[in-house]
């Protein structure tokens, strides 16, 4: 059942055990949608977490993260006017 009113929101996936708590994503997030954990991950660091809302899919956290595998940002397809990821394709 597709409900027209269900709005797909973008969201980040932060892999808990790949974060070293450098905080770049947390201060880089203009939406203030990320926070530091209270507990440690398996490799001994606090880790960045998504607060669960307000991600606008800008990709800033992904780009500023020094760990290539740690963050993914999932962005639902929308109409043109998005400004995310403007470093790719036609800007080269």
């Amino acid at each position: 059942m597709t409900d027209k009113k269900t709005k797909l929101e973008p969201y980040p996936i932060i892999k808990k055990n790949e974060c070293k708590a450098c905080e770049r994503c947390i201060i880089g997030c203009k939406q203030n949608a990320l926070e530091m954990s209270k507990d440690l991950n398996d490799i001994g660091y606090y880790y960045a977490k998504y607060k669960g809302k307000n991600c606008n899919g800008c990709g800033d956290c992904y780009y500023t993260c020094p760990e290539p595998l740690a963050i993914e940002v999932h962005i639902p397809k929308k109409k043109k006017n998005r400004k995310d990821n403007y470093g790719s394709e036609d800007n080269g």
């Binding site: 990709g59 992904y62 290539p68 993914e72 940002v73 962005i75 397809k77 995310d84 990821n85």
Partner: peptide
Amino acid sequence: MKILKKAD
């Protein structure tokens, strides 16, 4: 869905 993630 577009996913920003690690390059191949």
